[in-house]
């Protein structure tokens, strides 16, 4: 298994290079280094000299991909792409355009992002799976039918409405929690309840439907019939057999998501004023801070790959028959 993981990690390298290349190309079609300088230097009284100085200082005065004037290897290495990308692989993200250290920033912002994402993820998993089991338990009854209808209806509501509505009712009309903001430590739950609950409710529709399908698929298998024939109670069948055997399809969808929880949620974080990585990314997009966007994309893709590897490993844990070579 160790060898397998090592091989997967090696496979990941070309993917990460590809990701880097794509982001880089996309970003520099949008923004010439001149634009970035202007964005950072403000509106008033910006002189061409100031722009030149800004670029030189940050290494944006080099050619993008290929330097025709340089000699030998320098043709490729003395470019913005090379100098900016090579550091990424040792997780040196450099600085934001306004001078703050990106790695430092990411490490502090990760905490609030996780504080929202982790509870939302775990609770909504629990809630949706319980709902789905309930529906399957009552399959072919009015409860199942209306449950599915409710799910479809809930899926058809834009997530923006859940956030706007939740804030309006819970925080404004009923004064139950602060409308927005974030605090560390013991104060945190007051700020987290609303976004987490909104996140769970927003995901119930799609999640429940998805797990219901998985469970229905399992419940028609022979082993379930056998178990029932043995006289096991329906509840026992559900939790003892169906849930256990549905683990593989569940894991496929779930494990790959876990690492990316670090990235936070763009919309939730900016609506609720949570200083996490999601709002960091939005800010970076808005202020066209290339260094930050690239760092976030890089981390995102690395986390995704980690997620894929974790998924494979988790299979072996759930199902001893699966072997990784």
């Amino acid at each position: 298994m160790f060898a397998y993981v090592v091989r997967r990690v090696l496979y990941a390298i070309p993917i990460v290079i590809g990701v880097n290349l794509i982001t880089f190309a996309l970003f520099f079609v949008v923004n010439t280094p001149d634009d970035m300088a202007r964005m950072q230097l403000g509106i008033k009284r910006v002189t061409p000299e100031a722009i030149h100085k800004w670029k030189a200082e940050r290494g944006y005065d080099k050619p993008l991909f290929y330097d025709g004037q340089a000699e030998g290897r320098d043709k490729f290495t003395n470019t913005i792409f090379f100098t900016k990308s090579i550091r990424m692989f040792v997780f040196d993200f450099g600085r934001e355009d306004n001078g703050r250290d990106i790695a430092n920033e990411i490490s502090t912002r990760m905490v609030p992002s996780l504080a929202i994402a982790l509870p939302t993820f775990i609770l909504s998993l629990l809630v949706t799976i319980s709902f789905a089991l309930l529906l399957v338990l009552f399959r072919a009854t009015y409860l199942d039918f209306w449950g599915v209808v409710l799910c479809v209806a809930m899926m058809s509501v834009s997530s923006l409405f859940y956030i706007i509505g939740g804030q309006f009712l819970v925080a404004k009309l009923w004064n139950l929690v602060p409308i927005s903001g974030y605090a560390n430590g013991l104060d945190a739950p007051r700020f987290l309840i609303l976004p987490v609950v909104v996140g769970i409710i927003g995901g119930i529709g799609a999640g429940t439907r998805w797990y219901r399908t998985i469970f229905l698929e399992e419940i028609n298998r022979d082993y379930v019939r056998t178990a029932r024939a043995k006289g096991l109670s329906e509840l026992r069948v559900m939790f003892g057999h169906v849930l256990k055997n549905a683990m593989i399809p569940i894991l496929t969808g779930v494990v790959v998501v876990i690492p990316t929880l670090f990235l936070g949620s763009l919309i939730t974080e900016s609506f609720f004023g949570i200083p996490g990585l999601g709002s960091y990314t939005i800010d970076a997009i808005n202020s066209q801070d290339f260094a930050v966007v690239r760092a976030m994309v890089f981390i995102g893709s690395v986390l995704y790959i980690i997620g894929l590897i974790l998924t494979d490993i988790s299979y072996t844990l759930v199902d001893p028959r699966v072997r990784l070579q």
Binding site: L123, L126, V127, S130, F131, L134, A171, N175, L176, V177, P178, I179, S180, G181, A183, L186, D187, P189, R190, F191, I193, V197, I200
Partner: peptide
């Protein structure tokens, strides 16, 4: 569904504890 009820009860409990004071929605310590 039981779980949801538990979740909500837990939320309410947390609210009650953290918001002990006159107002619940004060964003400051």
């Amino acid at each position: 569904m039981l779980r949801l009820a538990q979740t909500i009860l837990a939320c309410a409990a947390v609210l009650a504890v953290s918001g002990c004071g006159d107002v619940w929605n004060d964003p400051y310590p």
